[in-house]
Design a protein around this nucleic acid. Structure first.
Lengths: 200, 200
DNA sequence: TAAGTAAGCGGACAATTGTCCATTTAAAAA
DNA sequence: TTTTTAAATGGACAATTGTCCGCTTACTTA
């Protein structure tokens, strides 16, 4: 028996849910909308909604796809035109783009944070495509730096992991809102920090 | 009129709540106990419980006091006997102790994470005593390193902040549970990372 | 000691999340 | 086309969080 495809009604519902959620989120903010409300507005049952997206987090992750692909495009564009530059220079540009992205999408990123870090069945943010993309890119740049002799060899994977983790929305939100730093200031601090970190 | 002190019945309830919560948490785990259950077991109303602790997070933070003061003692003891060593050496020891602490108390630390990072009224973990203690200590060690000429001057405050934030339970849990690293491995990675970071 | 007052109390209540399962229905198989 | 099958549905339900507010009581003041 062949693999069944997604049923047409299911596909239609998927689109309706995504559209409805997107609209509601933009109108009331991510926190201001409940799953029940999304289901009701979309004209589907709670069960139908939860079948696809087991939390608001997953729903947001899906909705982030577009903006994230715009981010990766901008990164690719940047790296293409920075092809001749040192790894150090590339890192600076990449960190800058990444922080711009986080600041732009902070509300969404905040929402996809898993509510229970330690739950056994949680799907880790650390294994989400966006996170893996950033760590992968960072590791590539750091590896290039090592190959080019710009810096002595080290555990680039762990470094990329830790650096990426430090961009989390929580930290960013605190620095901008509670500490009153501007996005540019935060960017400058991180760039300086990682520059020193990897190229001291 | 003089400042009213806490009423005796209120103080009694505070203790009962703390004792009950502690007991229930140890029996069923932090996630396995609801605020309602705590209130009921303690023999107080929901309102009474929430009056003092507006979330499980706050309750856990209060319960962490003891273990955290044991941690600070161990740090103080360590720094006393390491008085003659380099700042670099002190950093290594401190990071090691801090990671030991996180790994021991991970369930509690997980619970005190604010559920909404971006809420306007949230009391930031970054302003909690434990966090401030660690950043303060880290900054002091880094400043010492700069003064002693072990490393060129840099923004030690931001560095301490970022480093402390990177110890968050989420990261730690991922590395140990999902990646299968042992506590010792994680410790070694962090020590190496920060050693390179600040003393490259 | 008596009276006044504000802190404290507690449980009903509203809101939300997430689960469950009898029923429906699209699509494959015959 | 008819039958079969399992995916899909939806809304009732259970569990939890957090708020609200009229009542109670410990402490202050006179």
């Amino acid at each position: 028996m062949q693999q069944r495809n997604e049923r047409k009604d299911a596909a239609r519902h998927r689109e309706i849910i995504l559209d409805t959620a997107s609209q509601l989120f933009h109108e009331y903010g991510v926190e201001g909308v409940s799953m029940h409300q999304i289901a009701k507005s979309a004209g589907v049952g709670q069960g139908t909604l939860y079948r696809r997206y087991s939390s608001k987090a997953e729903l947001c992750l899906e909705l982030l796809t577009d903006s994230f692909s715009r981010f990766t495009s901008s990164v690719e564009r940047y790296l293409a035109e920075a092809a001749g530059r040192s790894a150090r220079g590339k890192l600076e540009g990449f960190v800058s783009l990444a922080i711009d992205y986080v600041s732009r999408e902070i509300e969404w990123l905040n929402a996809i944070k898993p509510s229970e870090w330690c739950a056994e069945d949680r799907t880790s943010v650390f294994e989400s495509d966006p996170f893996l993309y950033v760590t992968g890119m960072l590791k590539a740049i750091l590896d290039e730096a090592v190959v080019k002799g710009e810096t002595p060899p080290f555990d680039t994977e762990f470094a990329a992991f830790t650096a990426t983790a430090s961009f989390n929305p929580s930290t960013f939100f605190y620095l901008t809102k509670d500490r009153g730093c501007s996005v540019e200031e935060v960017k400058a601090k991180f760039v300086q920090y990682y520059d020193r970190l990897f190229f001291a």
